[in-house]
Design a protein around this nucleic acid. Structure first.
Lengths: 241, 241
DNA sequence: CTTTGAGATATGTGATCACACATCTTAAAT
DNA sequence: ATTTAAGATGTGTGATCACATATCTCAAAG
């Protein structure tokens, strides 16, 4: 019997192989790069240059970029030029308002869910990791911890569709927050504040106080927005004077 | 003097030409088609077939589809197959919940804006056009009128970013609502109800009653959702029996 | 020194081709 | 008549090429 016997499958160690496409991996890589602050707001990007970095032809990059354009993370700034969405104070403020609606709603839902000690532990762990990262000046880890903290909440409270939309909004505002690493003072101001506010978020969730959870999340968003706005105002004032 | 004089520009009738790309026009066409119900939920689509219809190479369609995939209007249902996002009761319900948050918020803002007679007139006109379209069985016009009514509100109350996100959500749920044209009874149930509820929306905006405006919009969304869900339940029950 | 214009370079866009691989058709074998 | 396998067809994916054009470089003309 030299025909393949499918019933032997369970005795083997073979496992499904990765069937993702190149454009998917390029997309995920670009997405992560945007969230990690490897691109600055307003920075020009080139399809061919990215393709060279990834070691692919321009083709998969084109498709990935088309998706990022649809998500407003990348935009066409001219006839044949692409750039990361730049920082515009009023646009950013509007996005923050929308995020307050959606993330506040998700926080409410997380706070009204049945008590879950593992969930609370995870939140504390994420928040501690931000604190520790700040102490050793590891900005990457601080950003990652902040993202993990927020999405832990949104995953808990939300259905996938809400999470998906919030993710898109993070992708739009991500490069702006991440660019705070350019100024150490700004970075510490945002995240030291963040750690304190996160503690309030955790407390509200423990108390299952929906309104307090929404307020705390909204405060977190608003205060980091204000810090960033002030930073850019001063930067442009210095450049102008 | 045979050199071109730019100051003469205003005396000429020349006007900027259309510089949009083919992929943009393809994208807009597909988007409109989805909102008008020319595609059924779950229907398979083919890049090459669409390219033939548009009279282009597959290339611009690929980019346009990549953007629609990012907006979750089209999805990959298999290794090499694309389809319009199908109707899934629970997914749709989740989208409706998110839409109630965002569109309710936009309605609140529209209701708290300064009085604007032209705005109220436009709303009445849109709602009347739905009513008239129903009387002559013009489903296309009814759908268009409904869309115009809602976006008149969201444009009035919202900043562009909020409008943009709401548009994306309409693109996801659009084919589902539009598919109601497949069943005349369902269609009339949704839109006769809609016209009545819209009147309440208008009244709330006139009274500048934020809470009432949000409630009315939410009722509109919820009731059409329930009609559609009941329709699909009965359809699948008949198919199963 | 300033301005103009030609040439070089780099860009996104679109078309075409090649490929691997699902799915469907069809005919042969049991 | 049913099952099976081979062939045909159609799919998205990726690479490569061609093109128009925006931007930059730099030298010549004013």
């Amino acid at each position: 019997m030299n025909t393949f016997d499918p019933t032997m499958k369970s005795q083997r160690t073979l496992v499904p192989v990765d069937v993702s496409t190149v454009q998917d991996r390029v997309y995920q890589s670009l997405r992560l790069g945007l969230l990690k602050g490897e691109f600055l707001p307003g920075e020009q990007v080139s399809i061919r240059a990215l393709a060279e970095v990834f070691g692919t032809s321009p083709m998969p990059v084109r498709e990935a970029v088309a998706r990022l354009i649809a998500e407003r993370a990348i935009e066409q700034s001219g006839p044949r030029t692409l750039r990361v969405a730049p920082y515009l104070a009023s646009d950013h403020e509007n996005y923050i308002r929308v995020r307050m609606q959606l993330e506040g709603y998700a926080a409410e839902r997380a706070a009204s869910a049945p008590k879950n000690p593992a969930f609370i532990d995870a939140l504390r762990r994420h928040n501690d990791s931000i604190q520790e990262a700040l102490e050793i000046r590891d900005f990457d880890a601080a950003l990652a911890g902040n993202q993990a903290f927020h999405f832990e909440i949104y995953r808990a409270g939300g259905y996938p569709q809400l999470l998906d939309i919030i993710s898109t909004l993070w992708l739009r505002t991500g490069p702006i927050v991440a660019s705070a690493r350019k100024d150490e003072g700004l970075f510490y101001r945002i995240f030291n504040n963040g750690v304190r506010i996160h503690a309030n978020v955790i407390e509200a969730i423990i108390q299952r106080d929906r309104a307090a959870a929404r307020r705390a999340i909204n405060l977190d968003l608003r205060s980091s927005h204000l810090s960033i706005r002030r930073f850019y105002q001063r930067a442009s004032a210095e450049a102008g004077g």
